[in-house]
Simulated assay, not measured.
Amino acid sequence: MAKLADGLRVIDADSHMTERHDLFTERAPKGYEDRVPHVEQVDGKPMWVIDGKTFGKAGSGGTVDHDGKKHAFRASQGGSWTIDDVHPAAWDAAERLRLMDELGINAQVLYPNEIGIGGQNLRNSVRDEVLLRLCVELYNDAMADVQEQSGNRLLPMPIMPAWSIDDCVREAQRCAAQGARGVNMTADPQDSGSPDLGDHAWDPFWEVCAGLNLPVHFHIGASQTALAYFGTTFWPSQDHYVKPAIGGASLFQNNSRVLLNSAYSGMFDRHPTLQMVSVESGIGWVPFMLEAMDYELLENAPAWAKKLQKTPSEYFQSNWYATFWFETGRGDLQHLIDQVGEDRIMFETDFPHPTCLHPSPIEQVSDTIATLRPQTQLKVMGGNAAQLYRV
């Protein structure tokens, strides 16, 4: 392995933790044990059930087996695997910490799996807002315990009740009081019946997130709109195993619409300290999009451009972060990072998903990372994340 900068502290800004089957039931108040998410055998298969309705297979949430071998999506997570087939670190916090120690990772940011990466599977399955609010709180309380018990080495991003702006405000405040270092937000709350994020109705939520130092995270695939996009980008004639490769690659650039909309909306003029993170989307598309967003606005809406306090691309440098993992910059990663901005990039592994760096994430990227300036290495591999997440 190539020698990396002295003092390097690796923080993984995107990984996933599969929900334990008893995550909700062990905390449910009396009378709600059978209504909150739990696992039942349906036609011989383990299925997640909420309020009597199934909302998906109780799967593995990962592609890494007990021996640390990674498998194709269709043959594992997207196939017949259950939680018993995946590496225990995919769902057990103690095992995750042990694996992190083996891999040389100091801390990890965590996102959900079975309930939807943005928690959207809950809202899609039931309309009882009292039950939905309870489910959100149960999940976030469980994740707060994971964070506390790990000594802030595991940093789960709490999900937000996107169907209600007032509830989002209250839940963000509640989670911040429990020690949360950010929030996990869907890019499309309109899927749940709320206004889109550019609507001024969301200003109270942005104000709370900015004031409590809660960066707002937009993970790819964290809404029904995004997942529909995933399922329509490949040609029907493509091979069964190729389709998720096309869908996955398409999702990376799909996050650019959140960057575009937020920069054009004026929200950062009203909330200049608000921070957002584009998660698991890579960074290679960012330089082109920064140019495109400036050019397109001037060409199509010059009067609106004059209303903004900055050029659209400048909002990335002041209000956005992006994560990367397998990218090499086609042999010149330093040049790519300089174009994006070394203060606005964080490293991730995506464990235990199909594109994760496994079984040796640091070794896999060491040759490329070693080509970066020492200061850049320290920032993108952990320093930026340590500052953003206060660890």
Rank of each mutant, 00 (worst) to 15 (best):
K3F: 09
D6C: 01
G7L: 04
D14P: 04
S15I: 04
F24H: 05
R27G: 01
K30F: 05
Y32N: 00
V36A: 14
V36C: 08
V39S: 02
V42T: 00
K45P: 00
D51K: 11
G52H: 10
K53I: 07
T54I: 09
G59A: 12
S60A: 15
G61N: 04
G62R: 07
V64K: 00
V64Q: 06
D65Q: 12
H66E: 12
D67R: 13
H71I: 05
A72I: 10
Q77N: 13
V86W: 03
R96N: 10
R98T: 13
L99I: 07
L103D: 10
L103A: 11
N106L: 13
A107W: 02
Q108W: 01
Y111I: 02
E114S: 15
I117K: 01
N121G: 00
R123N: 09
N124H: 12
D128Y: 00
D128E: 06
D128V: 03
V130R: 11
L131V: 07
L134Y: 01
Y139E: 02
N140H: 03
D141W: 03
D145V: 11
S150E: 08
N152T: 12
R153F: 15
P156M: 06
M157L: 15
M160Y: 01
S164D: 12
I165F: 02
V169H: 03
R170Q: 13
R174F: 06
Q178C: 05
R181C: 12
G182A: 02
G182D: 00
M185N: 04
A187F: 04
D191P: 00
G198I: 11
D199W: 04
W202A: 00
W202N: 03
W206Y: 15
V208R: 08
V208Y: 07
C209L: 12
S223Q: 08
S223P: 09
Q224E: 13
A226V: 04
A228W: 06
Y229I: 02
F230Q: 05
F234L: 06
S237C: 09
Q238M: 14
D239M: 09
S250T: 14
L259V: 13
A263I: 08
G266L: 08
G266R: 09
M267S: 07
M267A: 11
D269S: 08
H271K: 09
P272V: 01
T273G: 06
S281P: 01
G284C: 09
M289C: 09
M293W: 09
M293A: 02
Y295S: 05
N300V: 08
W304I: 13
K306L: 11
K306S: 14
L308I: 05
P312I: 04
W320S: 01
T323C: 11
G329L: 05
D332Y: 01
Q334M: 06
I337G: 03
E342A: 14
F347C: 10
D350L: 08
H353K: 12
P354L: 14
C356N: 10
S360H: 15
P361K: 10
E363S: 14
V365F: 05
V365E: 04
S366I: 14
D367I: 04
D367G: 14
D367M: 09
T371P: 02
T371F: 01
L372W: 02
L372E: 07
R373M: 12
R373F: 05
Q375A: 13
L378Y: 06
V380D: 02
A386T: 04
V391Y: 12
